[in-house]
Structure formats: structure tokens, C-alpha cells
Design a protein around this nucleic acid. Sequence first.
DNA 1: AATGAATGAGTCTTCATTCAT
DNA 2: GATGAATGAAGACTCATTCAT
Lengths: 207, 207, 207, 207
Amino acid sequence: MEHNDKQVHIIETAEKLFALHGFAGTSIRDISREAGINIAMVSYYFGSKEKLMEAIFHHRITHAWIAAEEMADNNILQPWQKVEELIHSFVEGMSNKSYFHSLILRQQLSNEMSPIASLMDSVRERNTNIIGKIIREGQANGDFKQDVDIPLLLFTMVGTAYQTLHSRESYRKMHNLQHMTDEAFMAEMKRRLKQHIFFCLKQSYHK
Amino acid sequence: MEHNDKQVHIIETAEKLFALHGFAGTSIRDISREAGINIAMVSYYFGSKEKLMEAIFHHRITHAWIAAEEMADNNILQPWQKVEELIHSFVEGMSNKSYFHSLILRQQLSNEMSPIASLMDSVRERNTNIIGKIIREGQANGDFKQDVDIPLLLFTMVGTAYQTLHSRESYRKMHNLQHMTDEAFMAEMKRRLKQHIFFCLKQSYHK
Amino acid sequence: MEHNDKQVHIIETAEKLFALHGFAGTSIRDISREAGINIAMVSYYFGSKEKLMEAIFHHRITHAWIAAEEMADNNILQPWQKVEELIHSFVEGMSNKSYFHSLILRQQLSNEMSPIASLMDSVRERNTNIIGKIIREGQANGDFKQDVDIPLLLFTMVGTAYQTLHSRESYRKMHNLQHMTDEAFMAEMKRRLKQHIFFCLKQSYHK
Amino acid sequence: MEHNDKQVHIIETAEKLFALHGFAGTSIRDISREAGINIAMVSYYFGSKEKLMEAIFHHRITHAWIAAEEMADNNILQPWQKVEELIHSFVEGMSNKSYFHSLILRQQLSNEMSPIASLMDSVRERNTNIIGKIIREGQANGDFKQDVDIPLLLFTMVGTAYQTLHSRESYRKMHNLQHMTDEAFMAEMKRRLKQHIFFCLKQSYHK
DNA sequence: AATGAATGAGTCTTCATTCAT
DNA sequence: GATGAATGAAGACTCATTCAT
């Protein structure tokens, strides 16, 4: 399950190309050309194109969301601070690993039964549980209403973030922010996005 | 630009397969098998696989959103009613043409310059203008705050709806609604979804 | 065997395209597009693409070379005048029906047994006989040497004319005749060509 | 630019088939069947059918005509001996590489602009220069007339040789030489052909 | 451990031809 | 008599994968 440097290089190259052109739209030749490796390396290291895709998911998922779980169990932060922290880490995660999140979205669109699909299902379930734990804690201490629809809340967070990050150029144009540097613009957009999501959730379910 | 019955049949079959498996992941052979037609028909009618994809978009987009434009100019409805109506028609549209909306999402993920991309850009621009018009009307009569971030508002609506409709089975399982018929469940989910989006927007930006 | 106007139009269009791009390199679609007729017309009128090719040859050959035969039997002209006349009519024929002569050359390159090949063989035999008759007449009255190699003589005439007419632009450039009109240049080139061929033959075999 | 044995085998097989049936009339399937190789090898080695055609020309042209250039600059031979030598090497070259010369002729018939066409143009120019050099040398020492039309002279040499070598069977039949072995016949025909061309040129332009 | 050579299956597209009208 | 619709076969080319080295 551990990958050496060369394997990681292939994985991340493939992640990018699969994200941009889809699984079927990316040939092993494309990957090997972009990564500067031999065509036979993919089959050699991963067995097949399919298995390479699975390797990408395992590579990314292994170390993810552990922090979130710890935070949910944290006793110092207030529920709303936890939500804020969750939104923050989610938006940052998505914008840092944007290729991977494109992959997730693509995988979700092809609703097939596959090892990857099962893996993602379990991830989604875990995420729901984390949020559920926070929400229930908030309901217990009177911060949240009783009729919060947790999945919808998760969908709003995920969906809004997806949509915004994938439409960054439209967003920039609509707000006439072309004068900013790329970095400054991204920072500003993420700031507004986090605030916006937080407002959406807070106002909807605040008691 | 007009398509006969057989052409529409091919278009809708391709729309479904492209939505499920992607453009590159769907072969003309797959389409012709599923549609029960000869393999050569696709090239015969549309010229190429690429042109077939364009035909799908033109087929769907031609008659869309005209109602929304009319509604925005409507003088009887209040701004918030218009937003409600917009959410309603958007969610209904997306759930009725779910394959097509998967296609849009896929197209958005491959951020390439193409005739289709330009077409979608203009559609997005039009949608933004419609909402903008409603919001500004609401700001004028004091219904909305002044600092509404219209693009983010659009992204929340679109993103939440996408995410929910594509995760309908997860949603069903999380709420233990397996006892309902498919129709009843969909109706209930859409009801909750519309209400949720409306709350998100209303509470965030209501003055 | 008689062709109506529409059929002749198809024949001549096909002749041009076959000459330029070869038989296999020209599709029935190309022909019908260029001729402005329906795709099914070729099969309808001629049965098949192959049969259309045969029709082209029959169309052109039926009325050809009859004059040459008459001239050979003529009693007034001297043998060398007949040769001169032959060269003249051959060069003119080739430059007037240049597409057809390209076809002949192409057919000759594919040394296949076919109805067309047999037809051309008989034409070549007839041409050889005509020249043979003139030469023998010249040998009888002492104008020609006895050891004239008639086929080689024919090949020189045909080959030189072919080569020159197909390299007209090279010829023009080599002689810096770009200032002339196309018509004037062609006339001049044909004049030189005829004279050149005549000299080649006359000087070689004149007694 | 260097080709291994297998590539040369493919090149020469394709050369033969293209010569006999034309470029469009020869499928990659035909070539691979005749050469006893896998269909994908052509694309694998040469990239495309078109590139294979270019490879044929580069393969043949690279080492050609260098001898001729050296001979033209030779100080021992007399101009007429050089012409004789030129005719000899040209006829031999054409009969040894008859498939390739069919290809050249075919390429010339389709007067298209292509990398190959440019290549052939430069070859033709070089050949003309070589002959021109010899002729001018002959004019200087009084062997040739002043008004020699060099291009026409070249066309006679090339055209006669082409025409004769491609009509060898007709020639054999016309002279009743079926009793000779193929080798003996070819030797005899080439002997007569060279002499014939030499006479044509000599008598036309000898002072 | 790593790779260049090779291939059978599959890709999209075009072909000449047929047939119902 | 003439044609638009339709198709099976074949076209060139690319694919993921294997194997000998």
C-alpha cells in the first residue's frame, strides 16, 4: 500500500489528467508522456489503468479527514466554531486538492458499483457522522433547532464549494477582480465563500 | 436545426450514456446498440460524435429558461416569491433533465474551450442576469440586504441541487425513507430541497 | 451505349476527378458533389463505380483516332508529312483531353487484366499499326532507314509528350516564360514540343 | 531517419503495392498481409499511411544521383560520353527501381502540394542542373548546338524510358521476342532503349 | 527492476450500394 | 424515372496490455 516516489509521481500525474479529461479520455500514453516515464510502467507498477485509478483514491484518502474527526470530539470549541472550522478545512482541502475533488465528482456522476464507489460511500458516511455528532451536540446545548436536515446541510456545503471553486473564473469576471494577483484573488474568494456557507447554515438552522 | 423523431431518439440515448459514462467512455457502438440503430447512423445524421454532443446541447437549451426570463419581468410577484419560483423551476428542471445536467457538470469539469463551452458560458451569464434583476428589484424595495453576493447565491442554489439530486440514494438511506415509493420519495425530497435552498438564501440575505 | 447529357456530365466530372486523385482516391460522393447530382445516380445510371470507369473509356475512345487512320491511308501526303501530322494531332489530342490521358497513364501503371486494359491494348495495337504503315511506306520509297524500331518510336512520341505536358509548370519556370499568358505559353510550348519530337524521330531514322 | 530491417521490409512492400494500385487503392491491411506483419505495425513504425509514403521517398532518394553529380564534374569523359553514361545510369536506375519510378509518376499525376511534391521538385531541379552542366560544357567545346532545349531533352529521356519500361510486354510481343528468357529479353530491350534515346538526343542536337 | 517491441481488440468514420417511395 | 434514407463492410488509427530481454 506504500508508494515510492516514482509511483507517487505517476499517481499525481494521472490524477490531474483524469480530473481534466476523464478516465476514458486519458490514455496511458498521455500519462506516461506527461510524467516522463515509460508506457509499460503503469501496468508494471499498478497492474492496470483501473488499478491506477484505485491507487489514486487510496493515496488521497488515507490521510484525509482524520483532523476533522479529532476536532468533532474536541471539548473546548463551541458547536458553531466547529462548523466554522469544518467549513474552513473543507474549502481549503478542496481548493488544495482540486484535481482530486474533480475526480470524486466524476466518479459520483457515473453511479456504478465499483471498489472506488464503495470506498467513497464509506467516506461520505463518515463525514455525515462527523457533522451529525457536531449538530447533535449543538441541539443538546440549545444552539441548533431540532429539525435540522443534516444531509442537506452537508450537500449545501459540498455543493456550494464545488460549484464556486470550479467557476472561479466566472466569479472573478462577474466581480471585476481581474486586477488582483491569482493568489490574492483566491484568498479573497475563499474568504467570501467560507463566510457565505457559514451564513447559509447558521441562518437556516440557528435557533 | 430541427430534428426528426429518429434523431431525437439518438440524441436522448446519447445524452443518457454520455451522462453516465462520459463522452470518451461512450462509444458510438454503445449508443447505436442502446438506441437500436445502425452504427453508421450517428455519423450519417450528425457528422461526428463531437457534433452529436453539440446537437444534444442545442436540443436541450433551445427552449430552456425562457419562462424564467418572463417571470423575472413579471410585475405581480414579489421578489421573494420570484426567488421561490426560480428555485422551484430550477429543481424541477434539474430533476426532469437529470442526464442533461450531469452532462453540463461533466463539461464544466473539463475546462476546455469548445463551441459547447461558449454556449454554456452564455447560458450562465443569462442566468446570472435573471437573478441579478430579481435581487436588485428586491434591494430597491428594501427586501434584500445591499451586500448580496449574487454569484455565490447562484452557486449555492445550483450546487446544493446538484449534490442532492445526485446523492438521492444516500439521502434516502440516511433518512430511512426506503419504505416510500420512488415517486413519493422524490416528491418529498424535492419539497425539502426547495425549502432548504429557500431558507439558506432567505435567512442569509433578508434584511 | 449512347449517353444522354446528364450521363455525359457525370462521365466528364468523374474523368477529371479520377485523373487527379485516382480511381480509389475518388469517392462517388466526391463525384456527385462536384457534378451536382444525387449520390444514387451513379449506381442508377452506370451500375457501379467500376462500370462508370469503363463508360469513361468508351466515351472517349469511340470517336478517337479515326482521323489518324484515314490520314495513314492518304495518298497525297509524304511519309514525313504524315509523321508530322501524327505528332501534331497526338500532342493536340493529349493536351485537349489531358484528364483522359492521365487516366490512361494511371491505368497503364496498374498492370491489371480488366476490360479496360484489353480495350487499351487494342488501341495501342491499332496505333502501332498506323505508324507501322506509315514507316513501311517511307521505307519503301527510301525515306526511312530499314532498322526503325517502331515501338520505341511510338514510346518516344508518347512519353515525351506526356512528360512535357505534365511538367508544363516546371518547363515554364526553367525557361522564364512567366510573363506570357497561359494561352500564349501553351501554344509556344506545344510548338516547341512538336518540333522537338519531330527532330528526334527524323534525325534518328532519316536515311 | 535510419530504418531497421523490418521497417525496410515494410517500406519496400508498400512501395510495390502503392506502385501497382495507388496510394488510396492500397489499404494498410493489404500491406501488412503482403509483408506478413501486424496491421498496427505501420502506424507504430511510421505514424500514419501518409508518413509511410514519405518514408518510401526518403528511403529511395537519399542515396540516388550522387554518382551522376560526380560524373558531370568528371574531367576525363567527353560530353557525349557523359550523356551516354547518364542515359545508361538512368535506364538502369529506372529498371532496377521500377516500382519506385511508378510511384514518382503517380505522384506527378496528382499535382498536389505535399512534402513529397516539394522533395521531387528539388530532385527534378538537381537533375536539370546536372544535364545543363554537361550540355553547356559540350556547347563550349563545340559538340552541341547553341539552341538546345534542355528540359525537352530531359523529358524525352525520362518519358521514353518510362513508356518503354512500362510497356515491356507490348514491346516483347510486337517484336516476337517471347522465345528469350526474361533476363535476356530485358537486357536486349534496355540495350536498344539506351541506343534509341542516345540517337534521339545526338541527332537532334549534334552540331 | 525496468523497458522497447509488438499486438489484438477496439476506436471513429467513410465507403459503395440498395431499397422503398 | 429519380432520390432520400439507410446499412454492412471496410477504411485508418489508437488502445491497454504483454513479453522477451
